[in-house]
């Protein structure tokens, strides 16, 4: 029996198996094992202690604050992102490339620096610090600072999901709407928005996942006061440093679930649109 020659662009069976095996090993060690560790460590003493740790008043306060910060930052970045995508994708103007680069700048900056800049502006020795103190206003080490840091970190997500899609879609449908007598608002609502809704949702989901999970930036501007200026990621750190491992991992598991949900939703949206959303810089 003669062997059927395999196509020229295909690898030998042994090479394929070795590659798949190696990939699964990398995958398991680097991705699955840490994920598994979060849930196993959270449930190490059973479900009840884990649930009790989450129901702890400080944990609940952290969850509430996390939701509040995300609820403010995400809409801000959604509006800004849609506006940026609209002017960059649908118009030509000098400085457009520079603007696109500047919008992605926060991805190139360390989360700690994203928090630091707000302290430099609004901290006690910040540019506007003395003025704020005179007027009894508090930005840094309080909610406004945490929101600002979160907005900075999640700034590019919506814009960078929308810009490539809207550029691919071109301007002709909007121009057609204009020749048919539609106003600007009508054009946006009836023509543009339906075309970008899934990508917009996908961008908002990613923005939200990062907003709820941000650690470095928020850590710098948070007062680290339990029950007051602690978000879930910060609460994990506090519990972990106090050797309350079950509590730390229980809160971590909650955030890991959020990450998995976000990935699932993103996968679903990609199926719906047949287009891959860029998650990263």
């Amino acid at each position: 029996m003669t062997a059927v020659p395999r196509p020229a662009a295909e690898d030998a069976a042994w090479a394929r198996l070795a590659a798949i095996g190696a990939a699964i090993l990398v995958f398991g060690l680097l991705f699955l094992l840490p994920l598994l560790a979060v849930f196993v460590e959270a449930l190490r003493r059973g479900l009840d202690p884990a649930l009790a740790a989450i129901a702890d008043p400080d944990s609940l306060a952290a969850i509430r604050l996390t939701l509040l910060v995300a609820a403010i930052s995400v809409p801000v970045n959604m509006l800004g992102g849609v506006a940026a995508a609209w002017c960059i994708a649908k118009f030509d103007f000098p400085g457009k490339r520079l603007l696109t680069t500047l919008i992605e700048l926060p991805f190139a900056v360390s989360p700690v620096i994203s928090g630091l800049v707000w302290v430099l502006l609004f901290g006690a020795q910040g540019w506007f610090g003395p003025w704020l103190q005179e007027h009894g206003l508090r930005i840094v080490f309080a909610l406004p600072g945490m929101v600002l840091a979160t907005v900075f970190v999640t700034f590019p997500y919506v814009a960078r999901t929308l810009i490539p899609l809207m550029q691919d879609q071109g301007r002709e449908e909007e121009e057609a709407a204009a020749t048919l007598g539609a106003s600007g608002f009508q054009t946006f609502r009836r023509v543009t928005l339906p075309n970008i809704r899934w990508a917009l949702l996908s961008g908002v989901l990613l923005c939200n996942a990062r907003a709820m999970g941000e650690f470095g930036a928020v850590s710098v501007v948070s007062g680290h006061v339990r029950g007051q200026t602690n978000t879930m990621p910060l609460h994990i750190e506090i519990l972990y440093n106090e050797y309350q491992f079950v509590g730390a991992f229980a809160v971590a598991a909650l955030l890991a679930l959020l990450a998995l949900l976000t990935l699932g939703a993103k996968l679903l949206l990609e199926r719906l649109t047949g287009r891959r959303a860029a998650v990263h810089a």
Partner: peptide
């Protein structure tokens, strides 16, 4: 006069039909 007030029919080369309608 902006495009939307001109009342001129325009057929695009790529047709530019609204794909979601």
């Amino acid at each position: 006069v902006p495009a939307r007030a001109r009342g001129i029919g325009f057929v695009f080369q790529s047709y530019a039909l609204f794909r979601h309608m």
